[in-house]
Design a protein around this nucleic acid. Structure first.
Lengths: 208, 208
DNA sequence: ACCGACAATATTGTCGACAATACATGGTTC
DNA sequence: GAACCATGTATTGTCGACAATATTGTCGGT
């Protein structure tokens, strides 16, 4: 209950990996076998993941994978827009010289990856950039909310990375964020980040 | 576990009412007696409130009321600043004529309450204004996050309302938000809301 | 063939009992 | 007298069994 972190993490990883389809039922006994755990641990994990927004439960009807539609994904992105804007601002206010250089290096690697057409490499760097900014900002509440929202977005994030030409656009936006942070310009960093995520939201609207 | 909503709500209400001191231990059996519930229901409630950020639990050590220090309260307020900014913007974009008039009425009542020195009445109207904006914005994700953060702020919110002269300042800010929303000016509404909550953050920093 | 009522099955919800753990107490040794 | 270990107690963690509920399948009637 406080409990078996292993089951929680394995189940969460499985969901994020896409092992389960949206709205698929999660029968407790089946999960017990799959993860070799007691029903108790499984229930605790389901409850934890419900709080995470990854599964939904109805009384006496059990748990199922929560389906996150395009509308909800857009709402999530709108919130991310402002919260990551806050993070970017704080990062610009607090970044050290060493951290600034590290960000610049990520920017160079991104340009290289786009030039080489390395899609997965680029999306990896994308994740690293955002994570670095969170580390630099050290804003626990904001970081926690982003982590929470991110878990619900994986499926759509994947769909987005398949949209052709996106990396060409976003690399420019990423560079603007990096430049603003290195220049210690909080206003510019927030603006750049918001513009970046606004274009993500637009891309989502394009899919829907 | 999916469970006994009554216990969850009663316990939550008790915490928000301030029946328990920060860092006070919550012994399961005592709560069973207090709320006339099984240990099972109490555990489920504790787990739910842990997800709410109101209690913290350590393995084999039980639950206690989570203490939210001034630093954390400031972080919460910073996040609120940008998320409520988003809400204000959306409210300005979507407000109907009837809703606009209702907001204007709240504004008039606020001026009256401040003029009459009605402190509790004013803080009531304050809550109603923010709630109305959330209703108008209809942004589920943003509203959910605000609700979540609000629960953790009650104690500090109370402390703030005791700061002399705050209502005189904030009534002007509130009016600016109302005017911007009624004018359907999203940019202005977001700016006004951010300025308002920035002053709340400053007041918190003043306390600490 | 279709619909409703009823029975059978599958699945989840709840409880009580016990195990595991942390904390307090007191006693022993140096 | 202080530090350390052993014992006891309070509290939480886990499990298995059973109850409650939903879902599926079957049958008879129309």
């Amino acid at each position: 209950m406080v409990a078996d972190v292993r089951v929680i993490e394995e189940l969460k990883a499985a969901i994020l990996r896409g092992d389960f389809a949206p709205r698929q039922r999660l029968v407790e006994i089946e999960l017990c076998e799959q993860f070799d755990a007691s029903r108790f641990a499984v229930r605790a994990a389901l409850q934890a993941l419900e709080a995470d927004g990854l599964v939904e439960r109805q009384r006496n009807r059990g748990a199922r994978i929560r389906e996150i539609g395009i509308d909800e994904a857009i709402e999530i992105t709108e919130v991310r827009q402002v919260v990551e804007g806050l993070i970017a601002r704080r990062a610009a206010e607090r970044v050290s010289d060493a951290e600034a250089e590290s960000l610049a290096a990520i920017g160079r690697a991104m340009h290289a990856a786009v030039a080489a057409g390395e899609g997965v490499e680029y999306s990896d760097l994308n994740a690293r950039l955002h994570a670095s900014l969170r580390d630099i900002a050290r804003h626990e509440k904001a970081n926690g909310i982003i982590a929470h929202l991110h878990g619900q977005m994986v499926r759509h994030q994947f769909a987005l990375s398949r949209v052709p030409g996106r990396s060409k656009v976003s690399v420019v936006q990423h560079q603007a964020i990096i430049d603003a942070v290195i220049a210690r310009d909080g206003d510019a960093a927030e603006t750049a980040m918001r513009a970046h995520i606004a274009s993500v939201a637009d891309a989502l609207r394009g899919i829907g």
